[in-house]
Simulated assay, not measured.
Amino acid sequence: MNETEIRQALLISMQRALWGKIYPSVRAVAVGFEDIRKLKVICYLDREPREEDYENLSEVTAEVCADIDFKEVEEHCVYAVKPFSQLDNLASWVYIRKEE
């Protein structure tokens, strides 16, 4: 797969994998990749991360890896209060919460 094909497949897979996985503390989810060698996902929260946040994110990335055979996965849950424009969106946002 070329980069465009990976990006398209990844964004579709992430959208499906996130069904039922977004809860009130999740502010945003960013995704990036290095070919099919590495998948990187950042889940931004409005509070300090807990074990269940990492478990939830791990379930999401496992579903993505069932669709696309990434060799390595990097997952981060991050407490962030900065505006979205100041956060790292990697290659793309896959979820952003509406905030006032």
Rank of each mutant, 00 (worst) to 15 (best):
E63M: 14
E3L: 15
W19R: 12
R50T: 13
A28I: 04
I6L: 08
I36L: 14
F84P: 10
W93L: 08
Y95G: 08
R37G: 07
N2K: 05
H76D: 07
E55A: 14
V64Q: 11
L45A: 13
L87M: 15
E48C: 03
Y44I: 06
L87G: 03
L45R: 11
M1T: 05
S13T: 13
E3H: 15
Y54E: 06
R37N: 12
D53A: 08
G20Q: 09
I6Y: 04
E52R: 09
W93V: 11
I42M: 01
E55G: 00
Y23F: 15
D46T: 12
T4E: 10
Y95W: 08
G20C: 06
V73Y: 01
E72C: 05
A17D: 05
A17N: 05
T61E: 09
F70I: 07
Y79D: 15
K82A: 12
Y44H: 03
N2A: 02
S92G: 07
L45K: 12
L90F: 03
F33P: 06
M1K: 06
C77T: 14
R37T: 07
P83F: 00
Y54Q: 05
I36C: 10
V60N: 09
K21N: 09
I68L: 15
Q15C: 04
Q8T: 12
E51A: 10
E75I: 11
K21Y: 13
T4A: 10
E3K: 15
Y23H: 14
E99K: 05
F33E: 01
K82E: 14
S92M: 02
S25T: 10
K71R: 12
F33W: 12
V31H: 07
E63S: 11
V26D: 08
F33D: 02
E55V: 07
K38H: 09
K21G: 03
E75N: 15
H76Y: 15
S58T: 14
D88I: 01
Q15T: 10
L10F: 02
L11W: 06
R37M: 02
E99S: 08
L18T: 07
G32H: 01
L39G: 08
E72M: 13
V94L: 02
L10P: 04
F33Q: 04
L39F: 08
A80Q: 12
E72W: 14
D46R: 09
I96Y: 00
K38D: 08
L18W: 04
P24Y: 06
V26Y: 10
V31R: 06
P49R: 14
Y54M: 12
R27W: 00
P83G: 06
V81C: 04
V60S: 08
K98Y: 11
L90K: 07
R97Y: 07
E75G: 00
L57A: 10
E100M: 09
Y44Q: 04
T4G: 02
L45H: 11
S25R: 13
Q15W: 01
E55H: 01
E100I: 14
D69H: 10
E52S: 13
S25Y: 15
R16F: 04
K38M: 15
E34P: 00
E48D: 09
A28H: 04
K98H: 13
S58H: 09
V64L: 12
Y79A: 14
I68W: 06
D46E: 13
S58W: 02
A62H: 03
I22E: 01
K71C: 04
V73F: 00
L90P: 09
W93M: 10
V26E: 07
I22G: 00
E51K: 12
K21P: 03
A62R: 13
A30W: 04
E59D: 13
K21M: 15
A9P: 00
